[in-house]
Design a protein around this nucleic acid. Structure first.
Lengths: 214, 214
DNA sequence: TCGCGTTAGTTATACGCTATAATCGTAGTC
DNA sequence: GACTACGATTATAGCGTATAACTAACGCGA
């Protein structure tokens, strides 16, 4: 799109950065963020330790970058599904598949906040992007107003939503979609249903159902 | 209760262990689990490094112990509230207060699973203890059967519930209580509502309300 | 084509952490 | 009152992040 007037050096730099991130993802996928080791990445890349600091200021900056990418990935998946006709239930399914395909990536975004990480401005922008899709989907589905205190509150606090004409009931539903699915998903991914013999997919489906019914 | 026929050595040992855990909690409360340092604890205790390994086999074992204590604390809080007459909404309030009083402790239990930690058998027992209280509370409140696929599934998978006479609809409600409250709480504690201007307590109240209404 | 500045990479180093080993003193125990 | 087991110490190994100092190569402009 934009004029890619990049020097060879800049292109090489971008490629190495991408390779670093790729290896970082591989490491995260198997061991989680806390075990992410710059040294190990460097070794796998054939270079030694401190060389990575040419490309990332430190561990925190790399993690921040990975978080940004994860948000981007989820936002793209949701947006793509919506653009190809998915309804609310379809979006829920996409979110779940995305989470299951790489639990550590999910936790990187929605899990325990990593200390030393400061959310860059654009991640909240991407997060809002996801919410925008959800809002559109619920508006299309049609949501009756419940007149709850929460709706009244949301009516006055809509700085996170682009279109000012969206009914508060829709906002409420989109938020609830988020919190409820996260509730089931994160507990499932953390293995809390493991010892109970419960099928998490049924729990998930039940929540999605409730989201559409009431 | 039990005959505490402990030698002075055993009492000393127990006291030091308690002090270690106490300092560990202090550290966790401020910086989170990932930054928990045995060395720092030892220094604050006036002893040096490796001495701690007399009391805990390693970092993981200490963390496991802390997780156990956290579960115990939550279970006690819920149980105490229930025994003094709290209903479902009251229990929800107690859980939220417990979580807000020490977010890191909450994440220790319900956040991103810590690598290297293996759930000891008794934590799932304590978890079931909490569920038992929830089940009792919902049974007392009265829950209509919805005949959902989830209920049918739960009817056949109730190894995690003590009393076999509990209706599946109650089990479903107790589980939903868990997942929904966790959904709102964990996102709130992680600061995901921070930039939106939304009052998390209203979101939480709305979920509690929905739990009782439908 | 030559030279200069930028940049990627190296090794060396400092520091903090977990964890084990070897050792020593002492406080309970019989 | 002697023995022993336990607590605590130092020393050491290994891994991690991060910085500093230095070297080599690369590309750009004269």
């Amino acid at each position: 799109m934009d004029a890619d007037v990049t020097s060879p050096r800049e292109r090489y730099r971008a490629q190495v950065q991408a390779e670093i991130k790729q290896h970082a993802w591989g490491q995260i996928a198997t061991t989680g963020v806390s075990a992410l080791s710059l040294k190990a990445i460097a070794k796998h890349l054939g270079m030694s330790g401190p060389a990575l600091y040419r490309y990332f200021a430190g561990r925190d900056e790399l993690v921040t970058e990975l978080i940004r990418d994860a948000y981007r990935s989820l936002a793209d998946a949701v947006r793509a599904a919506y653009d190809s006709g998915a309804d609310v239930a379809g979006l829920a399914h996409v979110v779940r598949e995305w989470a299951l395909s790489d639990p550590h990536r999910y936790f990187l975004i929605y899990g325990t906040p990593v200390p030393g990480y400061r959310a860059p401005a654009d991640t909240t922008a991407i997060s809002n992007e996801i919410m925008t899709v959800l809002i559109d989907a619920f508006r299309k589905a049609g949501v009756p107003s419940a007149g709850s205190p929460l709706e009244a509150h949301l009516d006055g606090h809509r700085e996170w939503v682009a279109d000012p004409s969206v009914p508060a009931a829709v906002l409420r539903r989109a938020l609830t979609f988020w919190t409820r699915l996260h509730g089931v998903l994160s507990l499932e991914l953390a293995g809390h249903f493991g010892g109970m013999g419960i099928d998490p997919s049924l729990l998930f489906a039940d929540e999605v159902d409730g989201l559409l019914r009431h």
